[in-house]
Amino acid sequence: MRGLPPVAITAMVFVAGFALCTAQFPNFASTRVAANLLTDNAFLGIVATGMTFVIISGGIDLSVGSVIGFTTVFVALAIERLGVPPLVAFAAILLLCAAFGAAMGAIIHVFDMPPFIVTLAGMFLARGASFLMSTESTPITAPLYSTVSDFALRLPGGGRLTAIALIMLAVVAAGAALLHFTRFGANVYALGGSRATTALMGIPVGSMTVRIYMLSSVLAGLAGIVFSFYTAAGYSLSAVGVELDSIAAVVIGGTLLTGGQGSVAGTLLGVLIQGLIQTYINFDGTLSSWWTKIVTGILLFAFIALQQAMLGIASRAGPRKAGVLKS
């Protein structure tokens, strides 16, 4: 099946990493650690799901980190300063994000511009706009926020599966279904295979591009809301560099950076591997938390090298299947 071997490797890396941690810290293997892993990386999981679609379609979205930052400030100010009910604020920001993503997608398609440049512009725009609104961290004290952070499913062993972890798992599940079981998903893979060919096959490439970037921005907005639950504050400097973390998660998850292959499940594993490294560092207590970046960098490099090697092997494999022909 497509994308399976790289995902299998990602899964093995995760399991091996978890085993390693458990060997060193006996109480590592607990539902508490597992649940915290999901909670701490909930926003990353959500935004990386959107990034998976973008990358499989052959694009990239550098604006997501800034969109998260913008969202936290927008939500905090709307609730705290303007007294807007939280749910109304959420709906407003998601609509705004949808429009933002649609605009980026439309520019990419209509002017045939590289997604890298367009979303880079989007990244500066969103980050600048969030600074314009507020340069300070704004705490959110709305009752909904304490309700959400108090909510959790108790797991045997003391783990608390929080609301934001559940949102993330729901997004991943829905994203996987959308990518693997719908026409939309098939078109995403098709775009990553070849834009020109996809257009010749009668797929509306323009509207697909718009919708893919819209999806990514909406999920970034949702990740921003989740991030505001997580930190109970809105801050224009939050989630700096998250676009790169999410790209790393997608690639470690076995998605081809050039598009056309990949899976949402792999991305979730990629996110969890990054979280696992962070957790290990917390357990250790003496290591600098920046080791997370170093190890992520090494893993990223290893996975890209692996992809190249596998492509090389595939192209050198020699005779292709002729097919069984009766004539």
Binding site: A186, A196, M201, I203
Partner: peptide
């Protein structure tokens, strides 16, 4: 051939 080599044969036949 204007088809997508990364998709399955079936997807290529019925894409869209």
């Amino acid at each position: 051939v204007n088809l997508l080599l990364n998709l399955s044969v079936a997807q290529n036949l019925y894409l869209g």
